[in-house]
Nucleic acid binder design. Structure first.
Length: 749
DNA sequence: GTAGGGTTAG
């Protein structure tokens, strides 16, 4: 457009140098070119000087127009200069470059290269590829510069799609032994995750330099093959190739992931020895490595001696304290940070998540918003996981809406976390909606669906998912099979469970872990096959842990088998002498079988050993806030109302024929007292609170830390019918969906 | 006349 309205060019002026000075003065307020510069210049093509200080497209266009005015419009060197500016300068514009390019009758390979480089630089690999193709069509042969420029702009998609073809061209045109081209090829293969091919190029290259090694090491890091990175670092040491700071950054990052303090220290030695340049990035990776390896003293020393720190330095320290379990210290440093980006916030949020401080996660997330830091997809995964753990559906829904409204990157991790959140909040329907909308599904997606259906008592759907997964050619892993076995357990599918247990090894080569044996014991035990379950324990190739024995123990309680319970309890207490739950469960069993003498013994044992039972605790969410109740809790601000509602509720139930089931009460006390204690169970308090505060017809959702007791289970069933209220209780192992007087678990839990 | 490599989080 601009060029078409420019005046026609005339002839070459004799006093060209003088004229150019006038041009410079007139075309721009910025003095592009100084007089001294001009005086010391060659007479041949003085307009080249104009480009030296040009720093905007505006200036470039004016220079261009003057060039045309002066009749230099056909000078190939000046064209190259214009294109080079557009293709390499930050202010450059590729559309303008292409415009000029199209007006060159026969561009040489240098100009083609520059155009390719330009498109790569602005991350338009497809345009770069088009240029390359056009160049071949015009019979211009690529040279050794062409391929590094072309490959530089590749994204992983383009690399996967046409990387190998370009590699073939490299060989065809005879550049496969050019060092720069080889390095570019390796870099391209690393990008598409094809490290084996990258390694092939590396191994066959006759000439290498330190960049070659750096490309390979960072490539292995990209593919999370940190052990290979370390091996290459060792190998380059043996070959006498000196690492640069780039090498060390990659190697230290790998050491951080591998928690390899020894290699990390060796890398550090190069820095101490002054063999490489210091940089902020290098210091940050050093801190990260020491912090990840638990050497917080060294990490802090480096941190303290740094002249300049950025939020990555601070975040590395916060993360280090999180790793070492010092969450309060992590918070102290976090609070002191002069600046925090979303990564810093996520590090702290993730810290709370890892130490099961889920409420703190939500609080911190809210704070993050008041500070106007935009959360990213990593933050969302952590927050959604916390919502899942809390069973906080409202908060989870809010996060989902936030993601959509703020266009946070909705990747496969976020979708997987959403599925998990919905299932752990007892909402299978919405989990399915997320699942169906996903463009890509991985092993974790399918496993989340299988486990999700399983814990929600939808065994058939879980197994259907498993078959769909196999049909989609996604290989299951050990965790997938935990879900499959769990689905069989929760719905009493014993034969299917047996079948899957053997097929996991036979068909998929997955060796059962202790957890899988635990599932089998649970499956058989719950169904009443106590002896067979015990046989599984006896025959398993590894030492049974407390979870395995615990599964059998639970089965003994359900099936009232005192003898095996005692045998199991003995094993359990050997493994975990301080586990209060075992004593409590043993008391329960004695109570169910009215063995009061034994019960008293166990209680005495508990007293002597100072063992306390884990207090039952129930959570209920109200308008995004999580309320927590423990048995007999009176700390809630609405406590009075809650207790009177609870009393009213129990009266209503009694009128409807409810009889208190105190059989599981281990206390050797009077019936009335037992009943009283039962009535104060945390889930009953939470339900009473829910009935007061939640509108009629709104589902009441409760999350309990322990297994729901027989009496509470019975009560909730009646509540669901009498008040026409859907109640969903998530206990330690699974969900109970109560509707119209019955429970999804079919009383099998 | 033009080339290549790096840090933090699931």
């Amino acid at each position: 457009m601009l060029l078409s309205i420019l005046p026609k060019t005339h002839f070459l002026h004799s006093s060209f140098k003088k004229k150019m000075v006038t041009i410079v003065a007139s075309v721009s307020r910025t003095k592009i070119c100084s007089l001294t510069h001009l005086h010391s210049s060659p007479e041949t093509n003085p307009s080249l000087f104009l480009f030296e200080n040009c720093n905007s497209m505006d200036q470039l266009k004016q220079i261009h127009s003057q060039i045309i005015q002066k009749g230099l419009g056909f000078d190939p060197v000046l064209h190259s200069k214009i294109i080079a500016f557009c293709c390499t300068n930050n202010a450059g514009c590729m559309n303008y470059a292409h415009y000029v390019f199209d007006r060159i009758p026969e561009p040489n390979v240098y100009i083609w290269n520059t155009m390719i480089k330009g498109y790569s630089r602005i991350n338009c690999p497809n345009d770069a590829v088009s240029m390359y193709k056009e160049m071949l069509e015009k019979n211009v042969k690529p040279d050794n510069y062409t391929f590094p420029f072309l490959l530089k702009g590749y994204t992983s998609d383009v690399a996967l799609h046409c990387g190998k073809l370009v590699h073939a061209h490299v060989c065809k045109f005879g550049f496969d032994s050019n060092l720069f081209v080889q390095n570019a090829l390796m870099c391209m293969y690393s990008l598409s995750g094809e490290m084996d091919i990258a390694r092939g190029v590396f191994d066959t290259s006759l000439k290498t330099d330190v960049v070659t090694w750096n490309v390979m090491i960072s490539g292995y890091n990209k593919s999370k093959l940190f052990d290979e990175s370390r091996k290459l670092f060792n190998a380059m040491g043996k070959k006498g190739v000196l690492p640069t700071s780039v090498t060390l950054v990659s190697v230290l990052s790998a050491c951080s992931k591998l928690k390899d303090l020894d290699t990390g220290k060796r890398a550090h030695q190069y820095i101490i020895g002054g063999k490489v340049d210091h940089s902020l990035i290098l210091e940050n990776t050093l801190i990260d490595m020491y912090a990840a390896c638990g050497a917080m003293d060294v990490a802090l020393r480096i941190f303290g001696s740094m002249k300049k720190r950025d939020f990555i330095s601070w975040t590395a320290i916060v993360k280090g304290f999180v790793n070492s379990g010092q969450i309060d210290l992590a918070r102290e440093y976090f609070d002191q940070m002069p600046e925090r980006d979303s990564v810093s916030w996520t590090a702290m949020i993730d810290g709370y998540l890892r130490y099961n401080k889920f409420k703190e996660v939500l609080i911190l997330f809210r704070e993050m918003q008041t500070e106007k830091v935009k959360p990213d997809e990593f933050t969302m995964v952590s927050v959604l996981t916390a919502c899942a753990q809390l069973g906080a559906l409202e908060a989870g829904e809010w996060v989902k809406a936030y993601i959509e409204k703020n266009q946070v990157k909705n990747d496969i991790y976020v979708a997987n976390a959403l599925i998990d959140m919905y299932f752990k909040c007892g909402n299978a329907e919405k989990a399915v909606v997320v699942f169906e909308k996903m463009a890509r599904r991985d092993k974790f997606t399918w496993t989340a669906m299988i486990v999700g259906f399983a814990i929600n008592g939808q065994g058939k759907e879980a197994l259907q998912m498993f078959y769909d997964m196999l049909r989609a050619s996604i290989a299951p892993d050990g965790v997938t099979y935990i879900g499959v076995l769990c689905a069989c357990t929760h719905t009493g599918m014993i034969n299917e469970g047996r079948k899957f247990f053997s097929s996991m090894t036979l068909d998929h080569g997955i060796e059962p872990s202790v957890a899988h044996y635990g599932c089998m014991v649970d499956l058989l035990g719950r169904a009443g096959h106590l002896t067979e379950a015990h046989d599984v324990i006896k025959k398993m190739p590894m030492e049974p842990n407390s979870i395995v024995w615990g599964a059998l123990f639970g089965a003994c309680r359900v099936h009232k088998n005192v003898e095996m319970a005692e045998l199991t309890a003995k094993q359990l207490l050997q493994l975990e002498p301080g586990n209060g739950a075992v004593y409590v469960l043993l008391c329960n069993i004695y109570a169910v079988c009215s063995k009061w003498e034994n019960l008293r013994e166990v209680r005495k044992m508990m007293m002597d050993r100072g063992i306390k039972k884990t207090p039952g605790c129930s959570l209920i969410e109200m308008n995004g806030t999580v309320h927590e109740f423990v048995a007999g809790d009176q700390s809630h601000p609405q406590s009075k109302e809650i207790y009177s509602k609870l009393e009213e509720m129990m009266e209503d139930l009694k009128l409807a024929g409810y009889l208190c089931n105190t059989s599981e009460q281990s206390l050797d006390i009077g019936e009335e007292e037992k009943e009283n204690a039962l009535n104060r169970h945390s889930e009953k308090l939470a339900i009473a609170f829910g009935l007061i505060r939640k509108e009629p017809g709104v589902t009441i959702r409760i999350v309990k830390n322990l297994r729901i007791c027989v009496d509470c289970h019975h009560v909730v069933k009646l509540v669901s019918r009498m008040y026409n209220r859907e109640v969903i209780v998530r206990d330690r192992t699974r969900f109970h969906h109560f509707r119209d007087g019955s429970c999804s678990c079919k009383d099998y839990w």
